[in-house]
Design a protein around this nucleic acid. Structure first.
Length: 587
RNA sequence: GGAGCGGUAGUUCAGCUGGUUAGAACGCUAGCCUGUCACGCUAGAGGCCGCGGGUUCGAAUCCCGUCCGCUCCGCCA
């Protein structure tokens, strides 16, 4: 139906006869002459319709935006000074010699112009129109190209793409499952996978050595700007490897993809252990574009008369941390500082002290703060030294439970950097390693930080003696503050696996749920490990967009519904009967 | 589960402390226009002010509830 794409026509096509198809992007009917912009996936091309050609001129007069048309004619140079630098095809135009309407269009429910913002619910409802916009198409193109780069990289490195079931049983990631009722076994349910975790481990036991998959994963939890209920992971697992092999492979993959897709050279990923990440950045996913760091001052205020600080400083489970924000005294009003206090309170802080450094060389007299009177000259002096505070800085100080302080000071660190616009304009990746095996849950029990198949960084005896201080062979890769992916080396030994289940208090339950895995461990399981990367988040980063919905063709809303199809919907009673499912009317 | 913001013409928005006939821009319709490119000019049509209740002489505006969208907390690798 066509000889060229609209968007590919250039000066070197001048004089050539072409035939193109596309959508009417705009019509400019000047009365005696008509200009059409015709759009396809490669771009926009101006068509000129000459009034001398009466037949096609009449057709052109009927055209409206979003009509689907076919035009043939000759590519001509534009008249001098009438090129359009905003179009890739702006130096040429198509002189129409034939024009046909392939399909008409009703008036679209919103304007596709780049100049008009449209509310997202409308865009989601008419997603197919929204996706006609070049910016949206570009994101999906990048997505396709990146996935293709990933596939060739993995293939080049000897990995096999193997599909795993999506109708499966619950795996232990800890999120809520999407359930699918079984018709053949009434009252039982499949779970959609939160990840292919168990299957990829089984593939290692199968001797397939190196596996990867672009896998769809499902988690029935509340949504965020970077979280969808179904999302895509690059899932990877390999045998006879050590932690460094996984980190190295992943790093090479990401460098390769960024280089080839964006021509961006990523620097070597720094490796931070979990504890120091929390200490220095207050988070397990630090944004290293942000130059600010937290500084511990427990030692300085241990004897302090200021009880809030002293008590925290003398308690192992607490910390007193300072965020020194350079040269910002004139950047924040009193009101903004008060709002910052409110802001961290939302994140669990009881309070937030701050000290303005009006003159760093003038001791107490050079400082301004509501807590000044509680601190000794010596403490202030040490504080200034320890934080290398300079005139014009503000020192924000948080004290309390380590976990809480790290969290809100980390959030404050991000907040301040955004306010001051001091993030470096580049991609900064890092590894977070040496995660704890377990974390304490609200009810006081222990839960695996990663998942219960993660290998501890010690022998079984030591693990059993002090399981809660054990670190794991677990690692996350973080870029610009986004957790892009994570993985671990897995347990390949039945006794160790049983020991972990026992510590979790699910020894019996695990026998039932994961008996098949324990069996497999007994039958010659190689040491293995892997990682999974969030493809959606990767594409978000690479296309510089703020919303995961922008990189998914048909995303769900924050209430997890699809506005195109209106899913989910009520099921037909006969379907429910077949499945043995009753729907409670009161819910 | 909780908090915040938003919902007014086809679209994006304005409409303040309640008060004549709810406005603008774009889009749409009709007419004019031979080098435009977010074409231009003239005229016109277009409104369950998300939905339900309440307060009031009177509600787009105030109150309560509810639905939807977005952001955040909780939740979630």
């Amino acid at each position: 139906m066509r000889t060229h794409f609209c968007g590919e026509l250039r000066k070197n096509h001048i004089g050539q006869p072409v035939m193109v198809c596309g959508w009417v992007d705009s019509c400019r009917d000047l009365g005696g002459i008509i200009f059409l912009d015709i759009r396809d996936i490669q771009g926009v091309l101006q068509v000129v319709v000459d009034p001398e050609l009466k037949e096609i001129f009449q057709i052109a007069q009927q055209l409206k935006n979003e009509f689907v048309i076919q035009v043939s004619g000759e590519i001509r140079a534009r008249i001098r000074d009438q090129t359009n630098p905003h179009l890739s095809t702006g130096e040429v135009e198509l002189y129409a010699q034939a024009l046909s309407i392939l399909n008409e269009s009703a008036v679209p429910p919103f304007q596709l112009d780049e100049h008009f913002n449209v509310n997202e619910d409308l865009r989601l409802r008419y997603r197919y129109l929204d996706l006609r916009r070049p910016q949206m198409q570009q994101r999906l193109i990048v997505r396709s190209q990146v996935i293709s780069l990933i596939r060739s990289f993995m293939e080049d490195n000897g990995f096999l793409e193997i599909e795993t079931p999506t109708l499966t049983r619950s795996t232990p990631e800890g999120a809520r499952d999407y359930l699918v009722p079984s018709r053949t076994y009434p009252g039982t349910f499949f779970a959609l996978p939160q990840s292919p975790q168990i299957f990829k481990q089984l593939l290692m036991m199968s001797g397939l050595d190196r596996y990867y998959q672009i896998a769809r994963c499902y988690r029935d939890e509340d949504l965020r700007h970077d979280r969808q209920p179904e999302f895509t992971q690059l899932d990877v697992e390999a045998s006879f490897i050590e932690e460094n092999d996984v980190l190295d492979l992943t790093e090479r993959l990401l460098c390769n993809v960024f280089k080839r897709q964006l021509n961006v050279t990523l620097e070597k990923f720094p490796r931070l252990d979990y504890d120091s990440a929390l200490r220095r950045y207050g988070t397990d996913k630090p944004d290293l574009r942000n130059p600010l760091e937290l500084i511990d001052i427990d030692e300085i205020v241990q004897q302090s008369e200021f009880n809030v600080f002293a008590e925290a400083a003398n308690d192992d489970t607490n910390r007193v941390a300072v965020l020194r924000v350079p040269a910002c005294i004139d950047r924040f009003t009193r009101k903004q500082l008060d709002q910052m206090v409110e802001f961290v309170q939302k994140h669990g802080a009881k309070g937030l002290a701050y000290i303005k450094v009006n003159d760093a060389k003038n001791g107490r007299a050079g400082l301004q703060s509501s807590i000044l009177k509680f601190l000794s000259d010596n403490e202030l002096q040490l504080l200034l030294q320890q934080t290398t505070a300079q005139t014009g800085d503000i020192l924000f100080i948080g004290a309390g439970l380590s976990e809480t302080v790290s969290h809100f000071m980390g959030v404050l660190r991000n907040h301040v950097a955004h306010e001051l616009d001091i993030l470096e304009d580049e991609f900064r990746a890092c590894w977070i390693t040496d995660w704890p095996m377990f974390e304490r849950t609200e009810d006081g029990s222990m839960a695996p930080m990663h998942h219960p198949f993660t290998r501890p960084k010690c022998g079984q005896r030591q693990f059993t003696d002090s399981p809660f201080t054990t670190k794991a062979f677990a690692y996350d890769v973080v870029i610009n503050g986004y957790e892009l992916g994570g993985g671990s080396l897995r347990i390949h030994d039945t006794d160790m696996q049983q020991a972990v289940f026992d510590v979790l208090g699910i020894g019996q339950e695990a026998q039932v749920k994961f008996g098949f895995l324990l069996d497999a461990l007994r039958l010659g399981c190689p040491p293995h490990g892997g990682i999974a990367l969030g493809i959606d988040r990767l594409i978000m980063l690479m296309t510089n967009t703020e919303s995961i919905r922008d990189v998914i063709a048909f995303p769900k809303t924050t209430k997890a519904s699809c506005l195109v199809t209106r899913a989910p919907t009520a099921a037909d009673p006969s379907q429910l009967r077949d499945l043995g499912v009753f729907v409670r009317q009161d819910s």
